[in-house]
């Protein structure tokens, strides 16, 4: 399912303050099966951008097309769209409300009017994808779970609708190291089975580990759209956008500057390990 933004602009209007331009002149295209990170300083428009991907916000100017859904059309079928584009918001676990984990994960698919069997099957497979055994966790109350587990339940609730496009806003904020690794595994898996994954993150090392392509926003404008390899060479641009080169990339450069031969273009500790072994 192709995502096409063309010259998109959006303003927040409130009773108490001057209108605020959150996005302007935004154009890009994301093809099926891509893994894309959206980065930028706080307030650069990342959250606003992804809220346009399932029609939660509608562009004030320009056009947004998601597959065959033209969101410029006021009568666009949002219900249909949202079964294809699953959005996981910041701190999604605060939206868990059902009495049991299984009921909560089933909430989305039930609203798609699937048969009970199909719902049950998708709930089990979504729970499996996030690494929570449905027979153990399904009957539990969400409040009995740890923060990391609750986050994964919230993600499972979106995965259970089997969206072609998975969009996540800061999916690892507030999670510990292992929790973060588990979320990364989920995203990698979902990408590997051919789906589009788009995520917002401030963690540049996570961006380096996961994304193929990065969109950089600065004050509502798209100032970079390309591979991570290209992005991490643009130190000035990163600085301008209030971002940083990943710790790993910086550390490797420092080691290289001391005359030690280090593998180039590696973006995860795993890759460093593999490459070092090859060298032996």
């Amino acid at each position: 399912m192709r995502i096409e933004f063309e010259n998109v602009g959006f303003n927040y209007v409130s009773m108490t303050a001057a209108p605020f331009t959150a996005l302007s002149g935004l154009s890009f295209r994301i093809e099926s099966g891509e893994m894309v990170a959206v980065v930028g300083a706080s307030g650069s428009g990342k959250t606003t951008l992804i809220q346009h991907m399932n029609g939660l916000l509608r562009a004030a100017s320009g056009s947004v097309r998601i597959g065959e859904h033209d969101l410029t059309d006021p009568s666009a079928d949002l219900h249909g769209l949202r079964s294809h584009v699953g959005v996981v918001f910041q701190f999604p676990e605060i939206q868990l409300f059902e009495e049991t984990v299984a009921l909560d994960v089933a909430f989305g698919p039930r609203n798609l009017c699937w048969t009970q069997d199909k719902v049950r099957e998708h709930v089990a497979s979504a729970m499996d994808m996030v690494g929570l055994d449905v027979s153990v966790f399904g009957p539990m109350n969400p409040f009995q779970l740890s923060g990391g587990e609750r986050r994964r339940v919230a993600i499972a609730g979106v995965l259970a609708m089997d969206p072609s496009v998975l969009v996540l806003d800061e999916p690892t904020a507030g999670l510990d190291w292992r929790g973060t690794q588990k979320i990364e595994t989920i995203l990698r898996h979902y990408h590997r089975i051919g789906r589009t994954v788009i995520f917002v993150s401030h963690d540049m090392d996570m961006v380096a580990r996961l994304a193929d392509r990065v969109l950089v926003l600065n004050r509502g404008r798209l100032i970079f759209d390309g591979t991570k390899q290209a992005l991490f060479r643009e130190e000035k641009l990163l600085e301008e956008a209030g971002l940083e080169t990943p710790y790993l990339v910086r550390a490797l450069r420092k080691i290289a500057s001391m005359g030690v031969r280090v593998p180039e273009d590696v973006y995860s500790m795993e890759e460093v390990r593999t490459r070092l072994k090859i060298k032996d």
């Binding site: 927040y12 409130s14 108490t16 001057a18 300083a41 706080s42 307030g43 650069s44 959250t47 800061e170």
Partner: peptide
């Protein structure tokens, strides 16, 4: 720049600041 803005219109990072 946002002293008169309603907090719920700020981004997550801005609200944290």
């Amino acid at each position: 720049p946002m002293q008169d803005t309603a907090p719920h219109l700020l981004s997550g990072g801005e609200r944290q600041r």
